[in-house]
Nucleic acid binder design. Structure first.
Lengths: 141, 141
DNA sequence: AGTATATGATTGTATTATACAACTATTTTC
DNA sequence: GAAAATAGTTGTATAATACAATCATATACT
């Protein structure tokens, strides 16, 4: 009984990752994510930070985040602020353009997901969100 | 109310994909997946098929699957069977070694996930599995 | 104060997963 | 039997990632 749920979760997680990382379908809806989306979102909601902190939060290598942030800076979505207390350090802040892009992208994602869930009852959506959150929290440990 | 659940699902899905595709933590537990695991699993449970069918099922490009299958063949996990009716076509079948590898890997995954869910009540596990499955099905459309 | 060590960030290099395009060898259609 | 379609592979390019080396500045030690 429990074992059966476990197997189901195991399989469905594998499938979810598989479908979400194939470019074929979702193209720009699940792929910008992995790099830019959460980064922009993090900065937009919790303010400027340096790459070290970001890398810690995302559990990515610092070099990876450094490149991502540099790419976003290059696109004009982020700008660098030198740390006044530490000559080595910078933080990245989001620009107006970055905020605009972020909101458009988020909006597109919400629309797409709403479409997927359009025949789901409200309480299932609620539970699904909560369980995903709970699962993600467990992944941090 | 509904909007709030939607936003939560949207965010948590992004986080789940993010965490699952970083190499840092899970290393070999979420990364072999994307390529080999579901492929081996598919062949083990539903029998030999060619790359075209696999690519269709996984919504990947045929060339991608062709390389993945070739890699697994090279490792001795799969072997190629020429189609007796069509000189162009092959199907891949799993070897004893492939089956062994698949089971070990699956076992490791189940263990890891059981660990993550160890304090979840049975009914939450059950619902989580069902909703993941339902969501994945909606992704096919 | 001056050297050694630690730290924040970037850059070089390699790997993996992917897609698209070109190609080969067969098969199907007309 | 020629033309078109199809199964699969291989060439080439891109994106996301990690690890190692490096640079510049800070901090710690004596």
């Amino acid at each position: 009984m429990y074992e059966q749920s476990l197997e189901m979760i195991e399989l469905e997680l594998a499938i979810l990752i598989r479908r979400s990382t194939s470019n074929t379908n979702n193209k720009k809806l699940w792929n910008l994510d992995r790099s830019a989306y959460l980064l922009l979102r993090r900065i937009a909601t919790k303010g400027a930070v340096g790459v070290k902190v970001l890398a810690g939060e995302f559990q990515l290598d610092i070099s990876t985040v450094s490149r991502q942030a540099a790419a976003l800076e290059h696109k004009g979505y982020l700008y660098k602020i030198p740390d006044p207390l530490d000559g080595r350090a910078y933080s990245f802040q989001i620009t107006e353009l970055g905020l605009k892009e972020l909101n458009e992208y988020k909006h597109a994602r919400l629309e797409r997901i709403a479409e997927l869930l359009n025949d789901w009852p409200d309480d299932e959506c609620k539970v699904f969100g909560q369980l995903l959150q709970k699962f993600n929290q467990s992944l941090l440990k």
